[in-house]
Design a protein around this nucleic acid. Structure first.
Lengths: 223, 223
DNA sequence: TGTACATCAGTGAACGCGCGTTCACTGATGTAC
DNA sequence: TGTACATCAGTGAACGCGCGTTCACTGATGTAC
């Protein structure tokens, strides 16, 4: 039953024809842009291949030339968003760890959270895409794989910094840390009664506390 | 434009006729049960008034007797889930803070997270409902109000414990703390590559670290 | 206790609509000789 | 350079389907006298 329902939910996400000629690329991009705009305007619930094609200024079969279905479009756009988030993370990883002093870590984490926040906020339909990747079964894996990748990188950094080995266990802890960070970003993005700056700053505080006092404790923090 | 799209998205959630007679209550409950089952089986994407009524063993107009639309059904079920979560929280609040020793706080937080995790996991369609309340515009406020309520209570507890005043700022910090806790629960519920126990235990660790080292620092942690 | 009536509860059938998707086709672009 | 051909790109029109919702109606339950 469980298995059956899972297989029922599975959907082809692989794109069909890649655009080759210039006008094809233009069409392809117009479809993704339209998708982003419409996600913002009408939300996940009402997005459809019909309105996407209309907004992009092409006919529906043109969309189906490149994408096998609606989810593949969201997947393509979602992957771009995750790529943009990943780029922020990698940029931070390269340059932002050089600070010193008692607040260097805090400021560094705050900048990271702020960077990911901004890139998501400014990405058309970014918030809705994240929801879609969390809520729509066919897209869940994309998001999870991204989170684990960030967690692995993060665990590597932390292991280097503390001169310990990067174990499987450390990666798991990082996975949780990543979830914590993202959740403060989500609050910043979505809760109208919360100042984004405060949410992110407190998120950075929490992360630092966890990194300095919680994560270093023995196997799953038992000792 | 922004305003227009928001108003376009708004939907009536207030239930119409409350069931009075016994068979009416049975129908009403059958609708909610069916909704929970189907959320689990087919997911948010495919839920519809048609299949809910069919599964509940009633006709569609019977559903519309009690609910103005699909979102009102999800809202009713979602409110029950949040109520169940709230009950766990209140139960914890009353009894679980009496422990002592260096790990009392950690264990207590872990039990809280575990309790909320379990009640959500065992609630039919619980995970999908949470997604729905986050992703579907008409339902977002329900979830946010719940989170703020938990945050206010939590801030009160913390203020008592530390013999300080419960300020607006403290509530904001608690709001972030609540988001962190929920995010570890979400990882436990949804990431197949993560042991739920580990996710929750690390979540408890992170929360404790934040509560003990991060949250007490001055205005938004600046000092 | 019986009966008439009011209210509550649920049905059968139908509606218009937009959805996802596909078909056979025309037109545009690139390439070989 | 011209032309014939292959491939790429996009169109117009249509499909069956399930969606949300409503109508006028029948049947069940409760209540007043």
């Amino acid at each position: 039953m469980q298995t059956a329902s899972i297989s029922e939910r599975s959907v082809e996400l692989v794109e069909k024809n890649r655009p080759q000629q210039q006008r094809a690329i233009k069409t392809y991009e117009a479809i993704l842009s339209a998708t982003g705009e419409l996600l913002r305007e009408v939300g996940l619930e009402r997005i459809s291949t019909n309105i996407i094609a209309e907004r992009a200024g092409v006919t529906v079969p043109a969309l189906y030339r490149y994408f096998p279905n609606k989810y593949a479009v969201l997947n393509a756009l979602g992957s771009r968003l995750l790529g943009a988030r990943k780029a922020v993370f990698e940029h931070w990883q390269e340059g932002r760890l050089s600070g010193h002093g008692p607040y260097a870590m805090l400021e560094s984490l705050n900048e990271l959270l702020m960077g990911v926040y901004r890139v998501t906020r400014d990405f058309p339909g970014g918030v809705e895409l994240l929801h879609g990747m969390q809520a729509m079964a066919p897209l869940q894996k994309v998001q999870q794989e991204h989170d684990w990748m960030v967690a692995r990188t993060f665990a590597g950094i932390w292991a280097d910094l503390n001169r310990v080995q990067c174990t499987e266990e450390l990666v798991c802890k990082s996975r949780v840390a990543v979830a914590l960070g993202f959740s403060s970003i989500q609050v910043a993005l979505e809760d109208p009664d919360m100042s984004p700056d405060v949410a992110l700053y407190e998120g950075a505080h929490a992360l630092r506390s966890y990194l300095e006092h919680g994560m270093m404790k023995g196997p799953h923090g038992v000792n």
